[in-house]
Simulated scan of single mutants.
Amino acid sequence: MVRIILAIVVIVLSSYRLITESKTDLMPYCMFFLGTLILVIGLAELQKDRKGFVGYMSIVSSLIVLFVSIQDFLMHLKGRFVTIVMYSYCIATSNNNTFNH
């Protein structure tokens, strides 16, 4: 059930980005859900007593995808924070200039 929900979320996010051709910030979320889906698939393979290559490789690849998605999300968050700080600084300096004249 969890695999189906995660797969639907990944398909919807990817389809939306593909159809609208938007450069929105959906990519970190899509990668996060994809990494979670791959992790769930890997754990399910290990629970089925199929301790083969696929289960372990799924877990390793999911951890890499999750790491990249979190890093990408934090970089976007940092970029937004810098923009807000610069905007606040511009407003503060423009207000100070009007009081000096």
Rank of each mutant, 00 (worst) to 15 (best):
L66W: 03
I64F: 07
V10L: 00
I70E: 08
R17W: 01
R80E: 12
Q47C: 07
K23A: 04
F99T: 15
V85R: 00
S14W: 01
L18M: 03
L39H: 04
V82C: 05
T36F: 01
T93N: 07
N95E: 12
I38M: 02
R17G: 11
S62T: 12
I5Q: 02
I64W: 09
I64G: 04
V10I: 12
S15L: 08
I11W: 01
R80Q: 13
G35V: 02
P28E: 06
E45N: 09
V65G: 07
M86S: 11
Y29M: 06
K51V: 14
K23C: 04
L39P: 03
M31N: 06
K23Q: 05
V10R: 03
K48V: 10
F73G: 13
S58A: 05
F67K: 08
S69M: 11
Q71N: 10
L74D: 10
T98I: 15
Q71I: 09
Y29V: 13
L26V: 14
S14P: 00
Q71W: 08
F33G: 09
Y16V: 13
I64V: 15
A44R: 02
L37A: 03
K51I: 15
F81A: 14
V65Y: 03
N97P: 02
M27T: 14
V2A: 01
S69L: 05
S69K: 12
G52Y: 06
R80L: 13
Y16K: 07
C30G: 09
V68E: 07
R17N: 11
N95C: 09
V85S: 10
L43D: 03
I11E: 07
V9N: 03
F67I: 14
D72G: 06
K78C: 10
V40Q: 08
I11Q: 02
S61I: 14
I41F: 01
N96F: 04
L13Y: 11
I38L: 05
S61H: 00
I64H: 03
C90Q: 04
G52M: 11
M27P: 01
I91K: 02
F67C: 13
D25E: 08
F99E: 14
H101P: 07
I4A: 08
R80C: 04
D49Y: 06
G42Y: 00
H76E: 09
K51H: 12
G55W: 02
V2G: 00
R50P: 01
A44N: 14
I19N: 02
R50S: 14
I4R: 05
C30N: 13
V68W: 06
L39D: 07
Y87E: 11
T83D: 10
G35F: 00
T83V: 10
S14Q: 07
L13M: 13
K23M: 00
V60Q: 03
V54T: 15
F81R: 13
M27Y: 03
G52F: 10
H101C: 01
R80I: 12
V68I: 15
F33V: 11
L13R: 06
S14G: 14
T36A: 14
V10Q: 04
G55E: 09
I11Y: 01
R17K: 11
S14H: 09
V54F: 13
K78D: 12
I4F: 05
T36C: 09
L18D: 01
F73A: 14
I5S: 12
S69Q: 08
L43V: 15
Y56A: 11
A7W: 00
N96R: 08
T24H: 04
L18F: 04
R80N: 13
M31E: 07
I11V: 15
I8A: 15
F73S: 13
Y29A: 10
L43F: 06
V40W: 02
T83E: 12
